[in-house]
Design a binder for these strands. Structure first.
Length: 285
DNA sequence: AGGGGGACCTGTGCGC
DNA sequence: TGCGCACAGGTCCCCC
């Protein structure tokens, strides 16, 4: 479910609840999510302090006083809710509302200061792991990730280089986390629309000036989405009460049959590598 | 080697 | 109202 902007919004929402606080106790309510929890999961977390909350691509990284890093991925349906006496606006309020069904509450962190952070994930595509801090680039998850879209390492020339010789559609190229890290189905569709590039165009033919346009579009789309997430955080809970999943105005995603915002045609839905792609055949070439 | 398709799960919304 | 199907924002694994 969450792509980079949603994960970044979740990170920012978790900071007041977790950063600088000791984990009084941690608990996993089952043996696995997508993968088994690491050995002695609860014991390795209990008693340690969360020094910092980082993000890389769609991964949250809790840097712990113990010298370990807790890596968390939200999969498609992972959510956090927070309850906290000292963060509440009104007594009895949730800071971020709990997900509807508590039977999917899989991990609970009791934090210093009466703050409780609960991870809920109906589909259990999410996962958590612990590794020694500093080993980010040698572990199975983060090694090989491409540049962050907001970093200097991501640029037109870099994207052009990554696309060179690739025979796959540019939609698949942008979804490849080794090319650029953090994009998912929605923001790839949005960036391609913004850059006026057809999702069916082959990567190899989207180098040069097209890659330049695409890189700029990716940056803009991601920046705007993070900003939209930030505004829902400022309002505390978003419309549905859940942190990180904000209502955002999409240009093409989910708009099949509706008019293109450029007024040139109708948004079309196709399937590429088993996933929905939305685009406007009128302006995307 | 790179790329496509299926698998992993549960929930929701729609048509009949 | 109930049932079955299609679909959902991610990633891994297998196979060509």
């Amino acid at each position: 479910m969450p792509e980079l902007p949603e994960v970044e919004t979740v990170r920012r929402g978790l900071i007041p609840a977790m950063e600088g606080r000791r984990i009084v106790s941690a608990r996993a309510n089952r043996a696995d999510l997508r993968f088994p929890f690491p050995q002695r999961f609860a014991e390795r977390l209990t008693g340690t302090r969360v020094d910092r909350l980082d993000r890389r691509a769609k991964y949250l990284l809790l840097r712990l006083g113990s010298g370990e890093t807790l890596l968390m991925h939200l999969g498609m349906s992972g959510r956090f809710s927070i309850t906290a006496e000292d963060l509440k606006r009104q007594p009895g309020d949730f800071v971020y509302a709990p997900a509807a069904d508590p039977k999917h509450d899989h991990v609970v962190f009791d934090m210093e200061g009466g703050v409780t952070v609960t991870y809920n994930d109906p589909r259990r595509f999410g996962f958590m792991d612990l590794f020694e801090t500093g080993a980010d680039d040698t572990g199975p998850y983060l090694a090989g990730l491409g540049p962050e879209p907001q970093s200097n390492a991501f640029s037109g020339p870099a994207l052009s280089q990554a696309f060179k010789g690739r025979r796959s559609p540019v939609k698949a190229g942008l979804l490849d986390q080794r090319v650029v890290a953090g994009l998912g189905n929605i923001y790839v569709c949005e960036a391609l629309w913004r850059a006026r590039i057809s999702p069916k165009r082959l990567c190899a033919s989207a180098t040069g000036v097209r890659a330049e346009r695409l890189a700029a579009a990716v940056r803009a789309v991601i920046a705007e989405a993070i900003e939209a997430g930030g505004s829902t955080l400022r309002d505390y809970a978003g419309a549905d009460g859940a942190m990180g999943y904000f209502q955002h105005r999409f240009d093409v995603y989910g708009r099949e049959g509706e008019p293109c915002r450029r007024g040139c045609g109708t948004v079309k839905r196709i399937v590429q590598s088993n996933r929905s792609t939305f685009y406007c055949p009128g302006c995307q070439r």
